[in-house]
């Protein structure tokens, strides 16, 4: 036990948990924005995959990481446009449409990878950006302020999203549309436009999450996300549709994963228990979800298409 409680190990574990939480946080923040306006998007994982491949390919071809990041966001926007058209004016059932988006992203990312790249080739990865002054703080600096830029962006987005949802007119409209689209409509809020905007924003964050993953890893592979998008959706419920809650859920998931990894690396978890331990992040998150989610209720109009006069 003393092995895992050394400063070096603790610092490495917490830094690892933060890194692991980052793609979940980006994707679940986006999903939370959409759900607050009443739109469930089960296609997050597909958007992440396509965003991951497109950004990977752009970095592979141009060696420009930031162009890759922008490509991931653009991919998310395009996927979001499709999903918004399907679910808002065409009023398709959100669950089934989301699964369609997921399958499209899964298949298309693999197809494009096979046709355009073939064998996995490494790309440039993000380098760490130590935050001036703060990164010099003993222990805390290394844990929190010596990360790649996508980590900072993801965590800085938490207060930004919380502010937009809770403190702006647009955020008020989002919440109104998610709770009672009829009332919002009667007050002159365009339900369709608000939902279009939240879907586009949410999908762009999913695309960004995919880009962050591919460039952080420096590689793309078939089904790279390994169902991260679905976990991100669960984390929205865990976080009670609030940005800080979503961040807490992402960190919980990432930290448990990091602790288990570190414990296995140090031989603190017997090999026979290794596979069971690997399930720990999911099990503990589900348990926490049961405890937390029951205390909050979901947006009343979630998954319900809006038709004026219905």
């Amino acid at each position: 036990m003393s092995d895992i409680l050394t400063t070096t190990v603790i610092v490495a574990t917490i830094a690892s948990g933060i890194r692991l939480a980052t793609p979940f946080l980006l994707a679940s923040l986006g999903e939370a924005i959409g759900q607050r306006s009443g739109v469930l998007n089960l296609g997050v994982d597909g958007v992440m995959l396509l965003g991951a491949f497109c950004s990977y390919y752009v970095v592979l071809e141009t060696e420009n990481i930031w162009l890759g990041v922008l490509t991931g966001i653009a991919t998310g926007l395009i996927m979001g446009l499709f999903y918004a058209i399907i679910t808002v004016p065409l009023r398709a059932e959100q669950g089934v449409s989301g699964i369609g988006i997921y399958l499209f992203g899964l298949g298309m990312s693999d197809l494009l990878f096979q046709k355009l790249v073939g064998t996995p080739l490494p790309i440039d990865q993000f380098e760490e950006w130590p935050v001036p002054v703060l990164s010099e703080i003993p222990i805390v600096g290394e844990m929190l302020f010596q990360h790649t830029p996508m980590v900072y962006i993801a965590f800085l987005l938490v207060p930004v999203v919380a502010f937009i949802i809770n403190r702006t007119t647009f955020g008020l409209s989002v919440r109104a549309v998610g709770e009672s689209p009829e009332s919002a409509d009667s007050l002159g809020v365009s339900v369709g436009k608000v939902r279009f905007a939240t879907i586009m924003a949410g999908n762009s964050l999913a695309g960004l999450a995919g880009a962050a993953l591919a460039i952080e890893l420096g590689i793309f592979q078939q089904n790279l996300t390994n169902a991260m998008g679905f976990i991100a959706i669960a984390l929205v419920y865990f976080g009670a549709w609030r940005a800080p809650g979503v961040m807490a859920g992402s960190l919980l998931f990432g930290m448990i994963g990091a602790i288990v990894l570190q414990a296995k690396t140090l031989g603190l978890i017997p090999r026979a228990w290794s596979d069971i331990a690997a399930m720990a992040p999911a099990i503990i998150t589900i348990l926490a979800l049961i405890i937390v989610a029951n205390r909050f209720r979901q947006p009343a109009a979630l998954t319900k298409p809006y038709v004026r006069g219905d």
Binding site: E216, G257, A258
Partner: peptide, 8 residues
């Protein structure tokens, strides 16, 4: 899980 493998 490529991400977990990277963290390992």
């Amino acid at each position: 899980d490529v991400a977990l493998s990277a963290e390992a």
